[in-house]
Design a protein around this nucleic acid. Structure first.
Lengths: 213, 213
DNA sequence: CACAGTTGATAAGTTTTCTTCACAAAGAGA
DNA sequence: TCTCTTTGTGAAGAAAACTTATCAACTGTG
């Protein structure tokens, strides 16, 4: 169920939208200004926020960048009564994914919501397709072994790693380590110890969860 | 530091084990029955649970499957005063990784703990290193694209897939599909529609969680 | 300083993977 | 039936990845 947060100071509009969204298979919640919206976003994960630009208290234009910075994957559609080209452009630049002017037809909004969520999916797709280095790296058994060794031992020097891998030619290990470094899966500290990067750590746990299925 | 949870109703034994485990470089915590153990497991991640089988409240044999189902990677060593072949077999079938009868020497327990943790490590390692086909498969952008397409569209026929990929040479697509089939990431139904296998689905979700980090 | 072990870059040769092409069986429709 | 699309195989050349070998910079130690 897709969670949507409606942020508007007009209670009637909030109630109305909540009802329509529920009917259309969404799981909505609402907030009457920016502060409350941010609190709710902290407690729960929303895929989409419908954000009124003019509100008493913290308004939408102010809230927008705060939301986007903390929750970059959350989609935001701005709702506003005062439509000017400038404010629209400004909102889009600050990270709004779409922009609808009041009054709007409910179908218009639903279309925007669906397109917005659809694009979000595509976004994930793009990210995955572009992480080519990472997958190329994982394709090699030696390199996966290195990741696991570093996962278990936290830090290892070059020659220790080479010995643990049972590889006598150190230049071969070097080749693979370079490839892992280029893909940002491992990194070196000042003393040249090799260790997993945060990304590398994440991957090892993912690897085990996949392998054990 | 390896976290170990000691679950036993005997306070003396708990305190004693906590001390010994601390001395031996573990980071132990304790619980006096199954309910409390489950709460602690929720709050914190333990690599190993030492679980008494007979306790007032929720006993060990009852708790065992609950823990294993929710935290499949957590290792569990059963401790019990009433050793029968049946209860041991039953416990092992329910997911216990080892089984020790009271009274036991502390060294005996430590050996069991170390072996248990070592096996856990080795298990993950072996599994991952052997899933070579899978990683080789994911190394190719076209094949990842196929997985994503199938993830989004559920089922696709060969030529539809080819067109969606914008590849004019269908034999090339065929080559990659074969490779995906061999790695058991996709499968075909009677009507030759291609779709993700359960493993394939799991991988796509893992892929997105890694990519978006 | 000199030396031994460590760490790493680069280039040539080898193996694996990918692409392309030629061909063919199975099914759908005129 | 004949034709066209779909679905698929196998093999040879092109491209990428991997291995191996040569050389060099850095590290610490006696």
């Amino acid at each position: 169920m897709v969670k949507v947060l409606v942020v508007d100071d007009d209670q009637d509009l909030r109630d109305n939208l909540m009802e329509v969204l529920t009917e259309n298979g969404f799981s909505p919640d609402s907030a009457e200004n920016g502060e409350i919206a941010l609190e709710k976003l902290q407690d729960d994960t929303f895929e989409l926020v419908l954000l009124d630009s003019v509100m008493p208290g913290m308004d939408g234009l102010e809230t927008l960048p705060l939301i986007k910075r903390t929750y970059p994957k959350t989609r935001i559609i701005m709702l506003t009564a005062f439509s000017t080209v400038n404010s629209a452009v400004e909102a889009m630049r600050n990270g709004a994914d779409d922009y609808i002017t009041k009054p709007f037809k409910i179908d218009e909004l639903l279309v925007a919501i669906r397109r917005c969520l659809e694009e979000a999916k595509f976004g994930v797709c793009e990210e995955i397709l572009n992480s080519d280095d990472m997958f190329k790296c994982l394709a090699n058994a030696t390199r996966r072994k290195v990741l696991l060794l570093l996962y278990r031992e936290s830090k290892l020097r070059f020659m220790d790693l080479t010995r643990k891998l049972n590889i006598d030619d150190h230049t071969k290990v070097n080749f693979h380590l370079k490839s892992l470094k280029d893909a940002h899966l491992i990194e070196q500290d000042r003393r040249k110890n090799y260790q997993l990067s945060p990304k590398g750590k994440k991957i090892v746990s993912c690897m085990s969860s996949i392998a054990s299925s």
